[in-house]
């Protein structure tokens, strides 16, 4: 592994600890800062551990083999096809889930289960998000069609 990975890990740990320290200042963002401490420190520790492990002569061959397999898996045509297919299915499921959520929040708002203003805001956000997804899908398809 490169020295850059070690430095990235150290910086992530340092930033995580800084967030933890800031969380003791009793601000409204305390819980968010605690979350960021976990999100930064844990992967930072893993990165530093991996650097130490794979840079030792005992594991160098194992790391080279792992890197090579990663490169093969990245370029493997069947895996690429599966990633593309699953991406498209996830996109369609996302559209369905968004549409279903709009219906649910609309009904909940009308029935008074949630505040109607909140319901309206959620529906507005979901509408914008769905339209963005549809537009992005259409634009990207047209761009890819021209390219290929």
């Amino acid at each position: 592994m490169k020295k850059r990975d070690l430095w990235t890990g150290i910086i992530m740990i340092a930033l995580g600890l800084a967030c933890l320290a800031a969380s003791f200042l009793n601000t409204p963002l305390d819980s968010l800062l605690c979350g960021m401490f976990g999100a930064l420190t844990a992967p930072g520790i893993v990165l530093v551990y991996k650097y130490a492990k794979y840079n030792s002569p005992k594991h160098a061959a194992q790391y080279r083999e792992r890197l090579e397999q990663e490169q093969i898996d990245l370029r493997d045509e069947r895996k690429e096809m599966l990633r593309n297919k699953s991406g498209r299915l996830a996109y369609l499921l996302g559209l369905l889930a968004g549409a279903a959520s709009m219906t649910v929040f609309s009904v909940l708002g009308k029935l008074g289960a949630i505040n109607e203003d909140t319901s309206r805001l959620l529906i507005l956000f979901l509408t914008g998000y769905l339209l963005f997804q549809l537009l992005a899908g259409w634009v990207l398809y047209r761009l890819l069609e021209k390219k290929y």
């Binding site: 093969i72 898996d73 370029r75 493997d76 045509e77 069947r78 895996k79």
Partner: peptide, 26 residues
């Protein structure tokens, strides 16, 4: 065999089982 032709073992298995047809290049 997979390592020799730079594909994953799962691709070789799928080709041999007839579940996947390789591209022209492969």
């Amino acid at each position: 065999f997979a390592r020799a032709i730079r594909v994953s073992r799962q691709t070789i298995s799928s080709i041999e089982n007839g579940r996947y047809s390789p591209s022209l290049e492969l």
